[in-house]
Design a protein around this nucleic acid. Structure first.
Lengths: 343, 343
DNA sequence: ATCGCATGATTAATCGTTTAATCATGCGAT
DNA sequence: ATCGCATGATTAAACGATTAATCATGCGAT
């Protein structure tokens, strides 16, 4: 039989009789035939590969993102080519170029701190923050901040310290903004940015949280679980028990959050859904596009661009000391309400 | 000019005059010409892409591995396609098949817990443990264990508890074995495997380390920083200060290790070198192979298959209580000898 | 002057798939 | 009986690079 008929049969495109299709299917399966991607790519201009560009692979959030994107892509029949920006903007540009040179059909970009994505010659899905122009889809970081803040407020906290890394990040800003929006009226918040502090005091320096507790802060709302971990260990080390004497919350539900003591109360993104939406929008754009036309275009858009975050209540946040029954400050609160790690 | 001449000029293969090469180089650069991977792949049978297969992308070690492999591959001109096994062996097989169907030139596989890699139709580099048959290159986990143990022994520890996840893992076994080999003569070690424990007590359950301290254990040598973190927070929570009353060590120097309090003493792999060796061996095998011959073969071998680990001394391990000057048990030991995170 | 040969550039075939265009066949309608 | 048409399969061209084979040219040697 002819190659054309085989192609038509397997793709279901041309006019092929039912029995022919069946026969071809059978023989193909028997011979273990798989169409060559190279030949197809050459003819159609589509490689079936999308590129994943991340600000910094070393970021602990990367596993979640990569896993979700890989799953979404592979179930749409796409492969995922990774590129590392190593935190550097020029490297990011280089990495994108390398991916383009490899003829990726599209890109998923998690931009570094509000980097505007330069116009590339293929569809692009951007995962940043709903408030960023050009964003395709992202978690509702602001809303997540609100949830954390509502939780702390309901527990009775009135003075909370927000701990972040760098205010230049859209994501971090949104999270902090969400928290402040809840504590705005009369209650007190202040913000500690770690990166500027480390510029002065060196990497991994103490954050001076014991002093903050002395100043009357009862809760530390960290912008990431990484900071929460740092805060939590520093407090425990200083003899300030969490959550009896001070509460700590995080963001992202990173891998260690459920297994430390006390387990972290945190807000997590629904990466699976975000990835699914991003990839779906990207694939749609790829399908509609003429692969040989190197048009430059704005990032693709999705119907749903804001995915709610989920509050995960564990043990690291409780009522502030003044409101606690006296005996609980002595009791080791090792009861577990939410144990496992959501995946 | 003809396409053939261009091809010869850019690849430096055929007979082309020097001035012609120069002219072609110039025009190519001017036009922004990049040879189509698809056309090349079709003709040569090589895609310039290698697949990276990981046991579980969610593993916190993944960023280090992926970053190192991506760097090594891209500096050899290769792209990296990722595949996630999601911890499942059959998914791992599926993932490998998908990569093969995408015509990868080779694979880097970090096998899940001693999975023997099934014969695939392309060169494979395996990163597991030096003691595993078929291993291409890996960190000297046993030696790393010895370094950790020597350090603890020198500090004066005589009873250490090894904390691991699952004895079925070659890596974990080697690390634990290295530790035991040092403490073998007369000194005491015992091993706590978390996964079996969690089967009974539930995920994220307490490890009962306070009890172990009461039994006389003065140090907890964890097989991974993730376990070390769990141990450290559990101890601190129970009022057992680290490192004054108990020492904790880890493995891998994960992202949080330098920023927690006390910062973790740990042993890290030289992933950059491991990745460089693995990719170099793989690329060599790819170059030597006839791309159209679907021969099945054993994993590729490298000259150097065992890369030493590096001991990173921070604050989480110190002399056991009995040997400490009395006042230090009261003093908060926040002095910093090694602060930053090595990348 | 002619041949041989080295050098440099071009031609043509090939990789495997897709897709438009073409060809063959059979059936119903006039 | 013949034409038209629908159906099903085949042919041919094209994607873009590589590479063996071929062609053109000039120079030194006989």
């Amino acid at each position: 039989m002819s190659a054309a008929t085989v192609s038509n049969a397997l793709s279901g495109k041309g006019r092929v009789s039912a029995e022919m299709v069946e026969k071809i299917r059978a023989t193909a399966a028997e011979l273990g035939y798989v169409p060559s991607q190279a030949g197809r790519a050459l003819r159609t201009g589509r490689t079936g590969v999308i590129g994943l560009v991340l600000p910094d692979i070393a970021n602990p959030l990367f596993p979640q993102i990569a896993q979700a994107i890989e799953l979404a892509a592979s179930s749409s029949g796409y492969g995922v080519l990774i590129a590392d920006s190593r935190g550097d903007v020029s490297t990011q540009t280089k990495a994108i170029e390398r991916l383009i040179d490899r003829d990726v059909d599209g890109l998923v970009i998690v931009p570094r701190r509000g980097t505007r994505v330069a116009d590339v010659g293929c569809p692009v899905a951007v995962i940043d923050t709903p408030s960023t122009p050009g964003n395709t889809v992202a978690a509702d970081h602001w809303g997540g901040g609100q949830q954390i803040a509502e939780h702390l407020k309901a527990l009775g906290h009135r003075r909370v310290l927000i701990i972040g890394n760098n205010p230049a990040s859209n994501v971090q800003n949104d999270r902090a903004g969400g928290i402040r929006s809840v504590f705005g009226q009369g209650l007190h918040t202040d913000t500690l940015w770690i990166e500027p502090l480390e510029k002065v005091s060196g990497k991994g320096c103490p954050l001076g949280l014991a002093g903050k507790v002395a100043e009357g802060y009862t809760a530390f709302a960290c912008i990431s679980d990484l900071h929460a971990l740092r805060a939590l260990t520093e407090l425990q080390r200083a003899g300030i028990n969490v959550p009896e004497k001070a509460s700590v919350t995080g963001f992202d539900d990173l891998i260690w959050s459920p297994v430390i003591t006390p387990a972290l109360t945190t807000a997590r993104m629904d990466m699976t859904e975000i990835a699914a939406i991003a990839v779906a929008a990207l694939v749609k754009a790829i399908r509609e596009r003429d692969p040989f036309d190197p048009e430059i275009g704005a990032p693709v858009t999705a119907e749903k661009s804001k995915v709610p975050m989920h509050l995960v209540v564990r043990q690291s946040a409780a009522a502030p000391p003044a409101l606690q029954p006296v005996h609980t400050t002595a009791t080791a609160a090792t009861s577990v309400t939410e144990g496992g790690h959501q995946s």
